[in-house]
Simulated scan of single mutants.
Amino acid sequence: MFTGRFWKAAAERAGKSAAQALLGLWALDAGFNVLHADFPLAGGVAAGAAVLSLLTSVVSAGAGEPDSPSLVTNER
């Protein structure tokens, strides 16, 4: 958890989670209009998803591959 590799992977996961939350929020808005979008709400939802993803990565540290935020290993 104390390596650049871990934090790079964790940041990538957090960015993906934020994007997924944002897309999910906008997909639920039947008449999404960018001119009338609630951007503070969207930013808050995306930031919350990113924080939850980072916390999940920290809790998962050491359970899978070394220096990886994943619970899964690459063993075959």
Rank of each mutant, 00 (worst) to 15 (best):
L28V: 00
G44M: 09
V51R: 06
F39R: 14
A27E: 10
V51Q: 03
F39C: 05
F39H: 10
W26V: 10
V34S: 06
P40S: 06
V34T: 00
A30Y: 08
L22A: 15
A50Q: 08
A49E: 14
G24Y: 00
A49K: 15
L23H: 09
G48Y: 09
G43C: 08
G48V: 11
V45A: 13
D29V: 07
L28S: 03
A49F: 14
A47C: 03
L23P: 01
G48L: 12
A46M: 08
V51K: 04
A27S: 13
G43F: 02
F39Q: 14
P40L: 10
L28K: 04
L22W: 07
F32V: 09
D29R: 09
L35C: 01
F32I: 08
F39P: 01
A30M: 14
F39Y: 15
A50Y: 05
V34E: 03
L22V: 03
A37N: 06
L35E: 05
G31M: 02
P40I: 05
L23T: 10
F32E: 06
N33H: 14
P40V: 03
A49S: 15
A49P: 08
H36M: 12
G24M: 01
G48W: 08
L35M: 05
L41W: 00
L28C: 00
G43V: 02
H36T: 13
L25F: 02
L22R: 06
A27G: 02
A49C: 15
W26M: 12
L41A: 09
G44I: 08
H36D: 14
G48P: 04
G24N: 03
W26Q: 09
V51D: 04
A50D: 08
A50R: 12
D29A: 05
L25E: 09
G44Y: 04
L23I: 08
A49T: 14
A50H: 11
V34G: 01
P40K: 11
F32M: 13
L41K: 12
W26D: 02
V51L: 07
A37Y: 02
D38G: 09
H36L: 14
L25A: 14
A46G: 02
W26N: 05
A50I: 09
D29M: 06
A27Y: 04
L22F: 11
L23G: 12
H36G: 06
D38Q: 11
D29N: 10
H36W: 03
G48K: 14
V51P: 00
W26P: 00
